[in-house]
Design a protein around this nucleic acid. Sequence first.
DNA 1: ACTTGTTTGCAACATCGTTGCAAAATTATT
DNA 2: AATAATTTTGCAACGATGTTGCAAACAAGT
Lengths: 140, 140
Amino acid sequence: MDEAITDILKHNQLSVTDNRLKILELFHNNNKALSHADIEHLSGKNFDRVTIYRTLQTFVEKGIIHTIPTADNSIVYALCKEDCGEGHHHDDHVHFICDKCGTTYCLEQTSIPSINIPKGFSAHRVNVLVNGVCKNCRPS
Amino acid sequence: MDEAITDILKHNQLSVTDNRLKILELFHNNNKALSHADIEHLSGKNFDRVTIYRTLQTFVEKGIIHTIPTADNSIVYALCKEDCGEGHHHDDHVHFICDKCGTTYCLEQTSIPSINIPKGFSAHRVNVLVNGVCKNCRPS
DNA sequence: ACTTGTTTGCAACATCGTTGCAAAATTATT
DNA sequence: AATAATTTTGCAACGATGTTGCAAACAAGT
């Protein structure tokens, strides 16, 4: 399990460090999107703020994680699927943000519908954000 | 023209001040979404940063403008349509962000498609962000 | 084990956004 | 038209967030 995470780093020509292993582990253990602050808390405050910023930046560049825009304007990050690589992101799935618990999910199975945009505009990438209540916060 | 803007403020039970008139004017003159920084520059730096923050906040609460989430994580604001009011936003249109000039447009005429989300989740609001090249930046 | 190159942590800084409070402007009242 | 009551503004200070330079610590290759 730890070796799988190590492999991800090696495949992306990244040095294997405690910091990177720990952060990748957090993404694998929590099946949801994490903010910089989440990581700072979850990691037990062992790592410097700056290091976390730089690690996340590196992971985004390498295509290991992707960023998700949110309405309340905090950056959150989530693991990419297999087919993302350096400079090639293919995160064409819907993102769901729970208004109760604040959790952001990647709905991998929900594909993005096609959008008809006006003449003169050309679309390169579509982001769909759905706000609502997630299955854990659903009233019984 | 200036009176129309004054009316908007009065209809929302807001005092008519230079600041608010100027900011509303900027939104009417520039047919695109504006960031806090945009307003600071466009207004000629006559108003305090804090005042701009508070004015934008007030306008959002009153339903005069709405916020748009962006991938690069800067808040942008745009005018609401007629039917938005205090606590009632109905901005179900697509937002388009030009990757070249950075302009954010509200595509009022493009409606949001329905999204099938997994069981257990309930959707309340859908945000669609399209990135691409706008009609002004289109290569000839 | 040693060397090379990368990564980390610290310090300092820049930007962004918020809050409390007194002065100024706007609205309501007489 | 003048005054009183309320709202808004600007300033100062603060907190949170994100960035950069540089020396020490670490990982990878020989």
